[in-house]
Structure formats: structure tokens, C-alpha cells
Design a protein around this nucleic acid. Structure first.
Length: 314
DNA sequence: TTATTAATAT
DNA sequence: TATATTAATA
């Protein structure tokens, strides 16, 4: 009975990111606006406090076919609105003179599977209870991520979870049968496993045999700005397999559906991240790490997009 | 003040 | 389409 719970719990825990994965994995999401505002173009010296991981990429990820440097995180695609170019004016040109860095519009954030995974992991760690935008954002430790970003994503994610709950007893063997099934829009969410308790929050005693989502090989977007122009469909994707196993876990929480984390304390403003040297918009900002201008990979119409990906695995 | 949600905008 | 933004509400 309970052991079953422990079962999935252990299973799930295995997938959880280790502290080492979580902390240092801070993504380098830099808002171009911020960068521009600071007029930074080169990476400032890394002021580590003491034990910050160095050069990352410890694993056998030696090959980075990316000739464009190890730009591993940010990618912006210019936009303008297909066919419509008159939108630039205004603040766009004035950047640099004033310090509108405070009220600049950031480019759209692209939720890559990796980023989403961090999101899910964070929520899993926090428990549904504490999984509120602010907290999630803090736990994620992603540079440049705003509460709004998370809130927006969380909203959609919750809807997704709700949809998933709807289909519990669906044998759905028929391929050509009914409809309930994969929504093309759920691909992103499907790329990350959903903790069981997410689906049934108030059901500690459910010995439902969880069908478990086929987390087999899912689609994976490579580093590519997912920009789509109006009329231009973005269909073809790259298929890749991703498998990252991690061990090590902390947090001894009972499989009750929710738990909270002992650490991650937020006083008021100063969030002592476990060591993530990330600080961004929030009163004082430390110069971002680095920015790099990349040419739009394939922006049909050119929409400003910000995509960040982690040190990933390929 | 933040969180949540629906509606709406880009 | 995916994400942002807004407005209303708790």
C-alpha cells in the first residue's frame, strides 16, 4: 500500500535534479534589452564566490558543433512582424540614451523542453502547495526569468494537467477511434514527465494503476528558435532522444502529495539562492554574463524571440 | 502584495 | 501557435 507510493516516489525522485544540477545549471538568459541597456557586449569576469563550477560541460559533451561559440543559452530572433516593419519606432531606437531598462519589453521567452523540465522539477520539489510563480521562479534560478514568465507558463501547465486528469480511464487503444489523445499543442508538456501527485492532488489513497505517460522518446527541439510566421507553419522537428539519469536526492518527504523544502528561504527580497550567482532585474542588477548576437536562424517573419537552453545534452 | 483565472493581444 | 499582458478577483 504505502510502499507503492514509495515506489513511484523513489522513481520520481530519481529523475529529480540533484542540487548540483539545479544550482549551477543556472541558465544564462539575458534579456537583450538589459544587455543593451548596460551596453555590455563581452562577458565580464566571473566573480565566483568560492565554488562555482567552472567551465561547465564536465560530461562528455565535448562536441559542440556550434561554431558560433558556446552560446548556450540565449538566442534572439529579430522580429518585426512579417511584412510590417513600421513597428520599430518609439522606444526601439531610443535605447541607449535613456535608461528605459526598467520598462523595456523583453522578447518572448521560448520554453524549451529543457527549460520546461526545470520548471516541472521545481514544481515537484516545491509541492503543489508552494508552487507559486514566485517560488518556482526562484527555485529555477534561471537568469532573466520573470515571475510573469512563470505565471504564464504555470497557467498553461495547469490547464494541461487538468486535461490530463480528464483522461484517466482511457484505454484508448484505438488509433482511429476517439479523439481524446494527443493534442499537438501538448508536445512541450509531454516532453517532461508529470509527477503522479500532480494529477491527483487530493487523493492519497489512490491506488490507481497509473498508466504512466509514455515518456519514451519524445520529440526534442534542438536549438532553434521556434519562430513561426503567420501563414508559415512550423511543423517539422528534429527527433532526438534524450535521456538523462541522475541520482542523488535530498529531501525526505513523505509521499503524501505535497511537501515543502527545508531550504530555499526567501526573506523578502534577498533570495539567497543556493549559490547561483544569478541576479537580474530587481533593484540592482549585476552585469549579465554575456550576450551574443546571433543571427536569426530561421525567422520567417522575424519575431523577437528569446530562447535559452541549458547545458544540455543532446 | 502576490496568486489565480479568463480574456485578450501580439 | 505560443507567450505576454491585462483585468478582475481572492
Amino acid at each position: 500500500m504505502r510502499e507503492e507510493d514509495s515506489n513511484w516516489f523513489a522513481k520520481w525522485e530519481k529523475e529529480l535534479p540533484s542540487p548540483e544540477e539545479l544550482m549551477p545549471l543556472s541558465q544564462t538568459l539575458i534579456t537583450p534589452d538589459l544587455a543593451l541597456a548596460f551596453d555590455i557586449r563581452n562577458p565580464p569576469p566571473n566573480h565566483n564566490h568560492q565554488s562555482t563550477p567552472p567551465p561547465l560541460q564536465t560530461t562528455a559533451q565535448s562536441s559542440q558543433p556550434n561554431s558560433s561559440a558556446e552560446l548556450d543559452s540565449v538566442e534572439l530572433v529579430g522580429s518585426g512582424g512579417g511584412g510590417d516593419d513600421g513597428g520599430v519606432a518609439g522606444a526601439g531606437g531610443g535605447v541607449g540614451s535613456d535608461e528605459p531598462a526598467r520598462t523595456l519589453k523583453r522578447p518572448r521567452l521560448v520554453w524549451t523542453p529543457q527549460l520546461h523540465k526545470r520548471f516541472v522539477d521545481a514544481v515537484a520539489h516545491l509541492g503543489i502547495k508552494n508552487a507559486v510563480p514566485k517560488t518556482i521562479m526562484q527555485l529555477m534560478s534561471v537568469d532573466g526569468l520573470t515571475r510573469e514568465n512563470v505565471a504564464s507558463h504555470l497557467q498553461k501547465y495547469r490547464l494541461y494537467l487538468k486535461r490530463m486528469q480528464g483522461i484517466s480511464s482511457n484505454g484508448s487503444g484505438g488509433v482511429g477511434g476517439s479523439s481524446v489523445s494527443v493534442d499537438p499543442t501538448d508536445h512541450l508538456f509531454a516532453s517532461s514527465p508529470v509527477p503522479a501527485h500532480f494529477l491527483h492532488p487530493g487523493r492519497p489513497n489512490s491506488d490507481h494503476f497509473l498508466p504512466f505517460m509514455p515518456v519514451a522518446a519524445m520529440q526534442q527541439q534542438h536549438q532553434m528558435a521556434a519562430v513561426v510566421g503567420p501563414g508559415q507553419g512550423q511543423r517539422p522537428h528534429h527527433h532526438h532522444q534524450q535521456l538523462q539519469q541522475q541520482f542523488r536526492h535530498f529531501g525526505t518527504s513523505p509521499p503524501n502529495g505535497q511537501f515543502d523544502h527545508p531550504f530555499i528561504r526567501q526573506s523578502q527580497q534577498q533570495v539567497q539562492r543556493m549559490g547561483a550567482p544569478v541576479h537580474i532585474s530587481n533593484g540592482s542588477v549585476a552585469p549579465p554574463l554575456y550576450v551574443e548576437d546571433l543571427e536569426s536562424p530561421r525567422a520567417g517573419n522575424g519575431r523577437k524571440v528569446l530562447t535559452l537552453f541549458p547545458t544540455g545534452d543532446d
